[in-house]
């Protein structure tokens, strides 16, 4: 179990306990934004090399959504925070 993610509630856990959702950096457009803005929000994703923020769900642990900052090249994990702490979820 190589990749350990240090959950802010549970401590170091293997990645098998988590479910990755994807990019945490994109912002939801306003409800009346253009079709292009919504298309980009729903479908278009970068494929970044290097540091990257993602949503991960600790499915088999505390069941909290986390924002994990990791490196897509080295797999190093730099920071983990509860997604709610950033005011992004209810």
């Amino acid at each position: 179990m190589a990749s350990l993610i240090t959950c802010s509630h549970c401590g170091p856990r293997p990645k098998e306990e988590f479910t990755v959702k994807g990019d945490a950096a994109i912002a939801r457009p306003a409800a009346d934004a253009s079709e292009d803005a919504w298309y980009a929000y729903v479908y278009l994703r970068d494929n970044p090399r290097g540091r990257h923020k993602e949503y991960w769900h600790h499915t088999s642990g505390c069941r909290r959504w986390l924002v994990v900052e990791r490196d897509t090249v080295t797999h190093a994990i730099y920071a983990v925070a509860d997604a709610a702490a950033q005011g992004e979820t209810a």
Binding site: P12, E17, S60, G61, R63
Partner: peptide
Amino acid sequence: TAVDLDRASFAIGHSAMTL
């Protein structure tokens, strides 16, 4: 499980949800 079960970090009475 990969949870650290050593008593120093997993004291009596402590719980952890895991696989």
